[in-house]
Design a protein around this nucleic acid. Structure first.
Length: 630
RNA sequence: GGACCCGUGGUGUAGCGGCCCAACAUGCCAGCCUGUCACGCUGGAGAUCGCCGGUUCGAAUCCGGUCGGGUCCGCCA
């Protein structure tokens, strides 16, 4: 309840105050400070030391006439030395205050200076937070990087975020339960990290990709409301927003439906955001909710960035409704698309009508990289419309297209004609690309939104079966229960046209500013539905036993209806810190190639370690020479 | 698995076939300096230009490979 408890005293034998603490009211007191030398300014008989700890910066003055011994010591001091200084807090001389510092009205007049620790010249600037530093250097000397103000600030924010998460969950009756890191492979799609077992030679543990199965078991165990800040491991290639080990807020609730889980998570996210970053406005409360279909239709993605508009517009009607060319637009790409029932959609880039040939070419190139075969553009200005396809379709139709797309003077309409999936994907990515380029994304705003009602299954043509799009335990929407069937009526005879393809899951993702924060679902807890769902996936319950044995067994003993969610703490902290890279909010991250430059991990094990495990490294070449390759 | 960008004194950059046994800033070292706060002034040290190979009369500069870092696609909820 108490949001602002009195700050605890951080006094120790080495310091009476922190370096950010002293104020004019302390003038006259004897204080002892300890910290790193941020900067030394040597004026001969007078030396200034800026002493820094994570709480702030205090100017220390050492006057040779007042304290010759301290002065002698101070002249030996260099940047990043750790020193302990004792002296009297004094008001600074009139006109000499430093208004940029909270401690800038006072200074410590040193009577003694003691060097606690010397320091080599650091490999990069610690006292200049904005100086660019090579990423590899930062990672190798991470302890120095973290010593810098920006990393300190971000780790503090992350700590506040996690603390707020704990508080909200504790206040809402959740029990924090730790789950093991040495478990059995959880087939969630990603590659497992494995740990060989010494006591059971020839077998391995897997590190959890998430505590998914364990939290469902906790529901069967009657824990009712569980949460955990859990470490998760996935052996996949890195990205700016992906590390091989990362942290999730994992939670699960019993006796809930979709609305209950979403309502709690939303409340929690709002409280946590407001207490972690009180100055950041939340764009919309309650959070907007989109069905998956709607999100794809309007934003081309299941994690829309709502900080700006530029929605995708279907412009097919602009291509067919013209009296003088009822059958043909005159432009083969459009005609083919219409004839084949493909998707033709547009986005409007505000103020980009004057884009140069080169800029347009870059946009086309970007669209191609995103998977488009081409990108049609129509520039709208005061005089009319301009487009390379004008000579095929005529100005009149260009104007209709522009109107349909919602473009006004100064705007640039960008059109993709392709399959629905490609059109949405390309325009969705292009939208994000342009939103950033045109500065439409307010870095302060927090735009949360929900996307739910995902398709339950995806057709796997190779195995002639329906694959669960998420977790195989995700439940189907009550109104779609009847769709869990095949056209043939026999679950063993499946085809792409089955009703199951239209079934939607009780599954929801939370997105923030265009990033996927996380997702979850209400699970199937009924044995008959589970069997049915598994059958559509070409699996029997017994066949799934190898992978989900414990959960299936547990479900025989009274499983409550339950559902939950998992949110990426790293991404959350990243966005709240206005960063675009998870490494910036991770104390000790790995490089893109999965190495730790500071610890020099991974490294070859001792031969003895292999021997104990009954392992021998044979190298990758032998694997590649195995049957069927070369 | 693939595409692209980067790699030059401690750090950040410039130089992009000869003018370079490499320039600038900062840092570092020494000396001077009693009111600075990116203190100032004077002087000095410090780089075989990531590594290997090739092209060339001549390579930091061009080409190939390799290593390291990053961005993206594939992969990944």
């Amino acid at each position: 309840m108490n949001d602002h408890p009195a700050p605890p005293s951080l006094a120790t034998p080495y310091r009476s105050h922190t370096c950010g603490q002293l104020r004019p009211v302390d003038v006259g007191v004897t204080a002892r400070l300890a910290g790193w030398v941020h900067r030394r300014r040597d004026h001969g008989q007078l030396i200034f030391l800026d002493l820094r700890d994570r709480h702030g910066l205090t100017q220390v003055v050492i006057d040779a006439t007042e304290s010759p011994e301290a002065h002698e010591r101070a002249s030996l001091v260099r940047n990043e030395f750790v020193v302990m200084v004792e002296g009297t807090v004094a008001k600074r001389m009139a006109g000499k205050e430093n208004l940029d510092l909270p401690t800038g009205e006072i200074e410590l007049r040193a009577t003694s200076v003691e060097i606690l620790s010397e320091a080599k010249t650091p490999p990069f600037y610690i006292n200049e937070p904005d100086a660019p530093v090579d990423e590899a250097l930062r990672l190798k000397y991470r302890y120095l990087d973290i010593r810098r103000e920006p990393m300190q600030r971000r780790l503090l924010l992350r700590s506040r975020l996690v603390r707020a998460i704990h508080e909200v969950h504790q206040d809402h009756g959740f029990i924090e339960v730790e789950t093991p890191d040495l478990i059995k492979s959880t087939p969630e799609g990603a590659r497992d990290f494995i740990v060989p077992s010494r006591l059971q030679p020839g077998t391995v543990y897997a590190l959890p990709q998430s505590p998914q199965q364990l939290k469902q078991l906790l529901m069967v165990a009657g824990i009712d409301r569980y949460y955990q800040i859990a470490r998760c491991f996935r052996d996949e290639d890195m990205r700016g927003d992906r590390q091989p080990e990362f942290t999730q807020l994992d939670l699960e609730m019993s006796f809930v439906d979709e609305a209950t889980v979403m309502a709690f998570v939303e409340t929690m996210a709002i409280e946590v955001s407001r207490s972690t970053v009180p100055d950041r406005p939340i764009l919309q409360v309650p959070f907007p909710r989109f069905t998956y279909d709607e999100a794809i239709e309007r934003y081309g993605t299941d994690k829309p960035d709502l900080r700006f508009g530029m929605e995708l517009v279907d412009i097919r009607s602009a291509l067919v409704d013209v009296a003088d060319h009822p059958m043909s637009t005159g432009f083969a790409v459009f005609d083919t698309a219409l004839a084949e029932g493909l998707s033709v959609k547009a986005i409007v880039a505000p103020g980009l009508a004057g884009a140069s040939r080169r800029e347009i070419d870059e946009l086309v190139e970007t669209a191609r990289r995103f998977g488009a075969r081409g990108l049609v553009h129509v520039a709208v200005d005061e005089d009319g419309v301009r487009s390379p396809i004008g000579k095929f379709v005529g100005d009149r139709r260009l104007k209709i297209i522009a109107t349909e797309a919602g473009a006004g003077p100064g705007d640039l309409v960008l059109i993709v004609a392709d399959t629905a999936a490609i059109t949405a994907d390309v325009l969705g990515r292009l939208r994000v690309h342009l939103g950033e380029r045109l500065g439409l994304t307010d870095p302060d705003v927090l735009a949360y939104c929900w996307v739910h009602r995902f398709p339950m299954y995806q057709w796997d043509d190779e195995h002639r079966r329906w694959d669960a799009t998420h977790n195989p335990f995700s439940g189907v929407l009550p109104e779609d229960l009847a769709l869990l069937d095949t056209a043939s009526g026999d679950l063993a005879v499946r085809s792409p046209g089955d009703p199951a393809g239209r079934a939607r899951a009780m599954q929801y993702d939370l997105a923030l500013n265009g990033w996927e924060l996380g997702g979850g679902s209400v699970r199937i807890h009924r044995r008959d539905l589970l069997e049915r769902s598994f059958a559509l996936q070409g699996q029997s319950v017994d066949g799934m036993r190898g992978k989900f044995g414990a959960v299936l067994d547990a479900f025989e003993y009274g499983a409550p209806p339950h559902g939950g969610i998992a949110l990426g703490i790293d991404r959350w902290a990243m966005i709240l810190s206005r960063q675009t890279n998870i490494r910036e909010v991770t104390a000790f991250p790995k490089t893109q190639s999965g190495t730790d430059l500071m610890l020099d991990a991974p490294s070859a094990p001792d031969p003895g370690q292999y021997a104990e495990l009954g392992l021998r490294y044979v190298g990758l070449s032998e694997r590649e020479v195995g049957p069927g390759s070369r």
